[in-house]
């Protein structure tokens, strides 16, 4: 009997939304679907996890999992894997889960597949390379459990209406695994809707030329209303905006109704984070910019001139 687990990251607002997507997928490939949730608030997530198909949730509210990076969670997860022997463990591609998955692999000696965009069966996953232009099916071999990191928003989350049994995890975490400590947390997220949830995303790149020019994107976002501002890695690395703005392979995956790319070339690593958007608009002064290949509407021109006009136009249309 096939058993698939979902490692459900616990956040301040409950389970990471991608864990619900993973449970939905797990239901279609296995008859036993279970979840592991570690950290303060874990037990509470069992309601949502159960609703999305987890029959059992192995949970611990122990703060050790939030206080120390990766090592305690990996230790507990390896213990559970040895005891319950799942065939596959699915993780969402987030930094915390990635760290846990990498460590688990060292202990189980099993395969670890990153950047999966679909899980086809217990030993076959799909990934997209070259900015989504090429689809690759990969066969996984070696000892169970197969470890798979799946990109968020690869499939929808659909409730199944179940309830999970909660099994409390009482892992003893050795002192030498409590090392890298989160000493401080800083929030620098922007106001307005969250990037992953906004109906419109306006993203800026190096073509904006100066960090101060990001203000026109914020202005455009507030003229539209239900819009969030994103950015490319180039400008995040340059320190123009915080990492929480980043869209792409190393950043967030967004699928808004409208995505407006402003001064963005369209590198493959950016495209994987936004190509699922319903409508794509690009403003770039280079007619050969790769972003135009993906855009429903491309505007060749200076973003610093086009955006202010667009703000005026939207204001004029609003009653």
């Amino acid at each position: 009997m096939a058993k698939v687990w979902v490692y459900a990251e616990v956040g301040p607002d409950g389970p990471h939304p991608a864990s619900l997507e993973l449970l939905t997928k797990a239901r279609s490939i296995a008859d036993t679907v279970e979840a592991v949730a570690l950290g303060p608030g874990a037990t509470q997530t069992a309601v949502a996890l159960g609703d999305h198909g987890a029959q059992t949730v192995f949970a611990s509210d122990d703060p050790v999992y939030a206080e120390y990076l990766a090592q305690p969670a990996a230790h507990a997860l390896v213990g559970l894997i040895e005891e319950h022997r799942p065939n596959m463990v699915l993780f969402a591609t987030t930094y915390d889960s990635r760290d846990v998955a990498g460590r688990v692999q060292a202990r189980t000696g099993s395969t670890l597949m990153s950047n999966a965009t679909d899980v086809l069966s217990l030993d076959r996953v799909q990934t997209q390379i070259f900015g989504g232009a090429t689809v690759v099916d990969v066969e996984l071999s070696g000892p169970d459990p197969k470890l798979v990191l799946v990109r968020p928003k690869s499939f929808p989350a659909e409730p199944a209406g179940g309830t999970a049994d909660v099994v409390e995890v009482n892992a003893e975490i050795p002192e030498d695994r409590k090392r890298a400590r989160r000493a401080e947390r800083h929030e620098e997220a922007a106001a307005g809707p969250k990037l992953e949830e906004a109906r419109v995303v306006i993203a800026g790149g190096r073509g904006l030329q100066d960090p101060a020019n990001f203000a026109i994107l914020e202005e455009l976002a507030s003229a539209i209303g239900s819009a969030a501002v994103g950015a490319t890695r180039a400008v995040v690395d340059a320190g123009w905006v915080p990492y929480s703005y980043q869209v792409g392979q190393t950043g967030k995956t967004v699928k808004p109704d409208v995505y407006i790319a402003v001064g963005i070339s369209g590198a493959t690593q950016h495209l994987v984070g936004m190509k699922g958007s319903k409508r794509i608009v690009a403003i770039n002064k280079d007619p050969d910019a790769p972003i135009f290949k993906l855009a429903d509407l491309g505007v060749v021109g200076d973003a610093l001139k086009v955006v202010p006009k667009l703000i005026e136009e939207i204001k004029a249309r609003k009653p």
């Binding site: 109906r199 419109v200 539209i224 209303g225 239900s226 819009a227 109704d257 409208v258 407006i260 319903k278 409508r279 794509i280 608009v281 403003i283 007619p287 135009f292 290949k293 993906l294 855009a295 429903d296 509407l297 491309g298 505007v299 060749v300 021109g301 200076d302 001139k305 086009v306 006009k309 667009l310 005026e312 136009e313 939207i314 249309r317």
Partner: peptide, 24 residues
């Protein structure tokens, strides 16, 4: 790929049409 236009006078209104079409 969709349509690519020059940033003339109508660019702003074409983008706004897309936003209106998406009901945002």
């Amino acid at each position: 790929p969709g349509e690519v236009i020059e940033a003339g006078d109508e660019a702003a209104s074409r983008i706004a049409d897309i936003l209106a079409d998406a009901k945002v």
